[in-house]
């Protein structure tokens, strides 16, 4: 409980200061609505916002799944074939350093106007791909050289080396990659929806755009609050899963 006190106090102080400033300085509500107005919007618009949050979350989760399959699969293939590794690396880096915003219009065209959610999932998956791919690649090379020697000594096959040594050794790297990727998938989904600029996907980013166009600033803040909560929730869930799995992996947790 004591751990939660300082952040709670700080947030409360900020909200009170914000509310007081809005009232005392007579700030126009479309410039900066007081937190009370945001709270009212949160309550009245809850059904719309929660539905939008669910859409954004499900697009991000689909993107994470695709990125995970592609990232792990490609990393595994590169680990088995050094030539493929050298061939793929520059492309993977190029995909990472190209801003997602710049390629978004292309994906929107490919997905078609009726299915912007496909473009959004694809773009978020591209953003989430790199941390998973590079984590898996590094992880598959991370086995203790001494252990590699032990496998040499007892004549392990390539398959045994992969399943008994390199895959298990890569677990912490994979988990870390997925944790970073989960956050990026949400960011990617939001950015892609902004760029798609269409309401058809019905995500949180669209709600923010829509409210902005109507100067419903309180609703923009409400949507932002939901987005922040969504990010925190996902981060917390992935972090908890990572800790549990790591404890199981290292045999130090209650899971074993």
């Amino acid at each position: 409980m004591k751990r939660h006190l300082p952040p709670t106090l700080l947030i409360a102080a900020l909200l009170i200061g914000w509310e007081a400033a809005c009232r005392l300085l007579h700030v126009a509500p479309y410039i900066l609505p007081p937190p009370s107005a945001v709270a009212v919007s949160l309550a009245t618009d809850a059904p719309i916002l929660l539905a939008a949050a669910w859409n954004t979350l499900s697009m991000a989760l689909w993107a994470l799944l695709l990125a995970s399959l592609a990232g792990c699969g490609l990393a595994l293939a590169s680990a088995l074939s050094p030539a493929l590794d050298r061939a793929v690396r520059p492309l993977a880096v190029a995909a990472q350093v190209t801003p997602v915003v710049a390629v978004a219009p292309l994906f929107v065209i490919w997905a078609g106007l009726d299915h912007p959610e496909r473009a959004i999932v694809a773009l978020a998956a591209i953003v989430a791909f790199f941390p998973i791919f590079s984590g898996a690649t590094a992880g598959l090379k991370s086995a203790d050289p001494g252990l590699e020697r032990v496998f040499d000594l007892y004549g392990a096959s390539r398959w045994e080396r992969l399943t008994r040594l390199r895959l298990p050794a890569s677990t912490p790297f994979l988990l870390e990659g997925h944790r970073v990727a989960a956050g990026l998938a949400v960011i990617g989904a939001v950015v892609a929806e902004f760029v798609a600029g269409s309401g058809a996907a019905q995500g949180l980013a669209w709600r923010i755009l829509e409210a902005g166009n109507r100067l419903q600033t309180d609703r923009m803040f409400a949507a932002l609050a939901v987005l922040a909560a969504l990010g925190l929730l996902l981060h917390g869930a992935v972090h908890a899963a990572e800790r549990r799995l790591l404890a199981w992996w290292a045999g130090t947790g209650p899971a074993r």
Partner: peptide, 19 residues
């Protein structure tokens, strides 16, 4: 150079398993 994901027993059994 023990494998952190294996128990002491499975670490020691590893050479025999590989054979």
């Amino acid at each position: 150079t023990l494998a952190p994901w294996l128990s002491a027993l499975d670490n020691v059994a590893l050479p025999l398993r590989l054979s």
